[in-house]
Design a protein around this nucleic acid. Sequence first.
DNA 1: GATCTGACCACCG
DNA 2: CCGGTGGCCAGAT
Length: 107
Amino acid sequence: MSGYYAQVYEVVRAVPSGRVVTYGQVAQLIGRPRHARQIGYALSALPAGHDVPWHRVVNAKGEVSRRAVVDYEAYQRMLLEDEGIEFDCAGRIELQRYQWLPPVDCL
DNA sequence: GATCTGACCACCG
DNA sequence: CCGGTGGCCAGAT
């Protein structure tokens, strides 16, 4: 598990239900600031049978990213709402309210 | 091994 | 708030 993607999955897997993280945040957590892009690519390459809550990863605006498959956006939103996360009329999440703060005792 | 592609973010204006 | 630009990495062909 020394791979790049593995680190991403590890961080995302640590995100508790009802909380969200941004791509940039995940990048910083794996020790790679400004690699937010790769986070998205990593999630797009999620292997089958994963146990990664990818739906808890949103972009910096607190909105669900659009994917190739249109229905996926609604699907992700559904999963988040099911965890108690509310969306405003613009389909966005209040980051300051739902953004997950990583454990400090990790350092 | 070169080339293309892909769930983004921060930094200017 | 909107837009353009640079930065970065792994996988598929």
